[in-house]
């Protein structure tokens, strides 16, 4: 099933064009890796999907992004963001307790029953493989967790809302290899239930977890194919150069 369809997407910030004529589809329950050098437009692309770019007053776009055949600009923005969760580049816990961080999204949706909240928080923490480490200290500040734990907390927080799609924006850029491995494990297991878009600077990470990989350069989608194909026999010379580390 096709989750996202993107047609002729062009994006500008003031007069600078960030994305040029991007066309692609994202399948349900796949992990799509998005790679490319910095300033290639990959994060902009990601933030288009949950309309986070709208916060920037200079943002302008043409073309269409469709979620299950419905233009995202026609969906209530809060519902859209509830359906499409996001995990940011740095672990960004809110200045609340561990419990309240995970409960936040459910609370703002209007859930007040303690029992339901407690149950959903536990479930989300389990799914992010964090429950065992924090179950006795749920009332502590989230800032007391280690970097890797914080990032898994952010994943749990995203899961708690019950999204269909999860956007990862370089989720391991600040983490050590062991924490990175844990986050990657979590992602692979999550794709059974969720559609995942992973923007990463780490080409090897894309190769490890991505079903398909998209390569962006200077705002253009150069190539999109099965991950294996991108890394072994890409059609475009530039893709080949990038994945082999000739430029970055």
């Amino acid at each position: 099933m096709v989750k996202f369809e993107i047609h002729d997407l062009n994006i500008w910030f003031a007069s600078t064009q960030a994305l040029k004529q991007v066309n692609l589809e994202i399948q349900a329950n796949e992990i799509l890796s998005v790679i490319g050098p910095s300033n290639s437009g990959k994060t902009t692309f990601l933030r288009t999907l949950n309309r986070l770019n709208d916060l920037n007053a200079r943002f302008r776009m043409t073309g269409a992004v469709e979620l299950e055949r419905q233009d995202i600009r026609g969906i209530n923005i809060e519902d859209l963001r509830r359906r499409i969760g996001m995990v940011f580049a740095l672990p960004l816990p809110l200045p609340l307790s561990i419990f309240e961080n995970v409960a936040y999204g459910i609370r703002v949706y209007g859930e007040k029953r303690k029992k339901v909240l407690g149950h959903k928080v536990e479930e989300a923490l389990q799914q992010a493989y964090l429950w065992e480490e924090v179950k006795d200290r749920l009332d502590e500040s989230a800032f007391k967790l280690s970097g890797g734990q914080q990032q898994r907390l952010c994943i749990a927080r995203t899961l708690a809302v019950g999204p269909e799609v999860i956007l990862f924006d370089e989720p391991c850029s600040g983490l050590d290899p062991i924490s990175t491995a844990k986050v990657e494990d979590a992602m692979i297991k999550l794709k059974e239930k969720y559609t995942i878009v992973l923007v990463t600077n780490n080409v090897k990470q894309a190769a490890r977890v991505g079903d398909r990989t998209a390569f962006f350069l200077s705002g253009e989608l150069i190539e999109l194919d099965k991950t294996e194909k991108i890394f072994t026999a890409p059609c475009d010379k530039r893709t080949d150069g990038y994945v082999r580390g000739e430029f970055g």
Binding site: L55, E78, G85, F88, L92, V108, Y109, T158, V161
Partner: peptide, 15 residues
């Protein structure tokens, strides 16, 4: 970033 996180979780601007 706090605002972005909150919005990305489906909170409205006022929330």
């Amino acid at each position: 970033s706090f605002r972005e996180v909150s919005l990305s979780l489906g909170a409205s601007k006022w929330q």
